[in-house]
Nucleic acid binder design. Structure first.
Lengths: 121, 121
DNA sequence: ACTCTTACTATACAAAAGTATAGCAATACT
DNA sequence: AGTATTGCTATACTTTTGTATAGTAAGAGT
């Protein structure tokens, strides 16, 4: 799916590190992955709620990304036999931990902006 | 360039966090960014060296990505007036710190793989 | 004048990622 | 039978990202 080349193809960085980095990138890259994860984290578990919560996402993209996130073990999909049918997407335990990566990204991003004197954007 | 939507467009997450995350994603996403950064980190400073070091990258992509990384304040470009001309790309101090993000990604990726019992890929 | 080296740029094309718009299937309620 | 709600799928299209291949510019050496 993602055939990013990385450190391994260059020198000694262990292969499983590279795989790990690629896994992580797969989970967070793309236009809608983070918005979706954030929405679920903030308590929107149902398709309609997530859709309403994210401005301008199309149903195609939403279901595509939800499928991928489920496949990657980041969220779960549960069907409840109420009526109308209720389907809930929730973060897995492992999925929740991805916040630590986001924290690292915020930290670097903020200090990088400071040290590089960016004003606008 | 990257109009990733994120947490802010969903709820309360502070805007500068979102900008920070987007900055970070811009620096590491795409097929060649990490290989290039890794190559420079490993001591390949010159265009030819980086190119020789990364299998199958085209000159177009290499110069495109180097420009972007420079623009983003992650690497510097220095021209030395030797002959033939020598140009060196090096990580900025801030650029080097992005390793902390990669560490977080490796950590999550590895433990996620464990907890999800992935075997192959 | 020709060749070598380094560090690229130009043009055309292919593949991947995302958008727009419409419609479907299941169940219940009226 | 008709309408509403939820959770999607289908098809066609545009945009972004990456590839392939060739060529350029500047200086030194022969």
């Amino acid at each position: 799916m993602n055939d990013l080349l990385t450190i391994s193809e260059i020198k000694k960085c262990p292969v499983h590190y590279v795989l790990a980095i690629n896994d992580t990138l797969n989970v967070i890259s793309g236009k809608w992955k983070l918005p979706i994860l954030a929405s679920i984290l903030y308590g929107n578990y149902r398709y309609k709620d997530i859709q309403a919560n994210i401005d301008k996402i199309t149903p195609r993209m939403l279901s595509k990304e939800l499928k991928e996130l489920e496949l990657n073990g980041v969220i779960t999909r549960n069907v409840y036999d109420s009526t109308p049918v209720r389907i809930e997407y929730k973060m897995t335990e492992s999925g929740k931990n991805i916040l630590s990566v986001l924290d690292a990204m915020v930290d670097w991003g903020v200090s990088h902006r400071k040290s590089t004197f960016k004003h606008s954007d």
